[in-house]
């Protein structure tokens, strides 16, 4: 009896949890197809807000900037973060500890503090706010996450592997590329994924460091949400779709690869 009661309780709790998390997301998707302006009454299916969104050049520009910045920031931060993590794993303990502490600062600090720091820094240098500052800022807050996700993989790596490769005549580049990198690939991939979504979704830091009409999706949603504008729903649905596709690809590719690998052997 007692067991059944608890399982009923847990089912209800989990059901409510799912409702709580997903109703807002479904709500936005539903209302992006609403034929009226209302955010509260669904009056019929229509694609007019999508048409409006695709015709709106500021919205399309924001989408383009968001994707371009996210892709660039991901590539740069994944390469730099991975190389740094490998370098640190061979460095002296004290150096490693200091770097790890400083590296954690952007993660531990409230985002708004990081944001104003960068804002004042760029202005002190006289750099014009815009694409470049946005990209630099994104690289800045993405690298720590890449390092954090690669480092544990390096720790569990046999330190003799690279030595063995070098002894067998591999150049350091070959040892790095053919021995170390493949072993830590899962960490690199998850680091890249975190970097991509962090950059793609970022609002606070982007909002402070950008300017001159360079906006990303989050900034646009923030500035437009002051007035009722159902195109935001369409834009949001696009964002949800994009992130879901990225997550699916990242989760599905390893499964397909594994299956293919099995077929070959």
């Amino acid at each position: 009896m007692e067991k059944k009661k608890t399982s009923l309780f847990s089912k209800i709790l989990l059901g409510l949890t799912a409702v709580f998390f997903y109703v807002p997301i479904l709500y936005i998707i539903l209302f992006s197809f609403n034929s009226s302006r209302s955010l509260t009454k669904f009056e019929g299916f229509s694609l007019r807000w999508y048409e409006k969104m695709f015709a709106d050049s500021t919205m399309m520009e924001a989408v383009a900037y968001t994707v371009i910045i996210a892709v660039l920031a991901t590539i740069i931060s994944t390469v730099v973060g991975t190389l740094t993590a490998i370098g640190l794993s061979k460095s002296r303990k004290l150096m490693r500890a200091v770097v790890e502490q400083v590296n954690n600062l952007p993660i531990m600090n409230p985002e708004i503090v990081t944001a104003i720091g960068l804002l004042m820094f760029f202005s002190a240098l006289g750099v014009k706010k815009g694409f470049l500052t946005l990209l630099l800022a994104h690289v800045m807050f993405c690298i720590p996450y890449v390092i954090l996700s690669v480092t544990p993989k390096l720790r569990s790596l046999d330190p003799n592997l690279a030595d063995a490769a070098l002894d067998l005549g591999a150049t350091p580049m070959q040892a790095l590329w053919k021995v170390i990198v493949p072993q830590i690939m899962p960490g690199i991939i998850s680091g890249a994924l975190i970097a991509f979504t962090m950059s793609f979704d970022d609002f606070v830091i982007s909002y402070f460091v950008t300017g001159n009409g360079v906006n990303n999706i989050s900034i646009l949603v923030y500035t437009m949400s002051k007035r009722v504008n159902p195109s935001i729903n369409a834009l949001s649905t696009l964002v949800i779709l994009l992130i879901t596709v990225v997550l699916l690809i990242v989760n599905v590719i390893p499964i397909i690869k594994e299956k293919k690998g099995r077929k070959v052997t």
């Binding site: 997301i25 936005i28 509260t40 609002f203 935001i232």
Partner: peptide
Amino acid sequence: LITLPTWINMLVRTYAWMGI
């Protein structure tokens, strides 16, 4: 199921509550 929404833009998810 719980992790998925955290990958989606916080601003978008907050905006959803404005209508609800």
